[in-house]
């Protein structure tokens, strides 16, 4: 195992004797999008808070590219979107994002341009001069995304980023996450919206009882997994390194006499997993 990425080993945290995290292991590689799911009270927010250094873990080890999570060099490469954002009622969207950009270490000469670009990208350009007290929940969420992405972080922590967003906003968040992944950033997504997690995550960690009860790979970086539904309802998984291998496998199935009705990308059914685990 290399030092690259986020590594958490045996993270433990209890509040007044109540154990919330009982030894959680997390590995997130650069360019990987990992979803954190689990029932209420499973410790998702606590885990994210420990990773970000908001809470001090009672035990275990957390490292970002081999560095401690309170290292300012790590913080300079971290982006965080909380479920709710609030920084006072009178501050405008532009002032808010600019302030956050300066705290994030964006060079002074670039701040204004980057703020303008980011607000435009998140479709907040027209509302940039308005006080945030006049923003809707979705607009606040977009502003939170702006401040998290403005310094192009390598470690991105998103807590319910699509919360309060309209369908356009949800699509935008999906695109932004895909962009971060392409850039090589690692993304940890804490969300109750299983359909969104399914669409954007490479892997999910199911947290229950203070541990990772199940880890499920949704997308493989080096291979394609397809599900072929046969006559009669049986589903066969086809695994290949590329599309040619998948096509050859389907051909073999057909030549073998199987009635192939449908072939589609295989994605773990998170809803079933969630139901099964809770």
């Amino acid at each position: 195992m290399t030092d690259r990425g986020v590594r958490a080993r045996g993270v433990r945290k209890a509040f007044d004797g109540h154990v919330v995290l009982a030894g959680v292991d997390v590995d997130i590689e650069p360019g990987e999008v990992v979803g954190l799911i689990g029932p209420n009270g499973a410790g998702k927010t606590t885990l994210m808070s420990c990773l970000l250094g908001f809470l001090h873990a009672d035990g275990g080890r957390i490292a970002f590219d081999g560095r401690r999570n309170d290292d300012l060099r790590v913080r300079a490469r971290t982006g965080f979107v909380p479920e709710r954002v609030s920084l006072g009622r009178r501050i405008t969207g532009w002032q808010f994002v600019r302030y956050m950009a300066r705290l994030s270490g964006v060079p002074r000469a670039e701040v204004d341009r980057r703020v303008t670009d980011m607000l435009e990208r998140l479709e907040l350009g027209g509302a940039a001069g308005r006080p945030m007290s006049q923003y809707s929940r979705g607009m606040l969420q977009r502003a939170a995304l702006c401040q998290a992405l403005i310094h192009e972080p390598d470690y991105l922590f998103l807590d319910e980023p699509a919360s309060g967003l309209d369908p356009n906003g949800i699509l935008l968040v999906r695109d932004l996450i895909a962009e971060q992944k392409r850039r090589g950033a690692m993304v940890l997504l804490n969300s109750h919206q299983l359909s969104e997690v399914e669409k954007v995550c490479d892997r999910v960690l199911f947290l229950r009882g203070g541990v990772v009860a199940r880890a499920e790979t949704l997308r493989h970086a080096d291979r394609i997994v397809m599900a072929a539904r046969l006559l009669g309802g049986e589903v066969v998984l086809i695994d290949g390194r590329d599309e040619a291998e998948i096509a050859a496998a389907v051909r073999r199935l057909v030549e073998g006499g199987a009635g192939v009705v449908e072939v589609r990308p295989h994605v773990a059914d998170l809803e079933s997993i969630f139901r099964g685990e809770t």
Partner: peptide, 14 residues
């Protein structure tokens, strides 16, 4: 109480 501090402490500032 407002949650603003979490944003601040996630930034590279002591």
């Amino acid at each position: 109480s407002t949650g603003a501090l979490q944003l601040i402490v996630s930034k590279p500032i002591r």
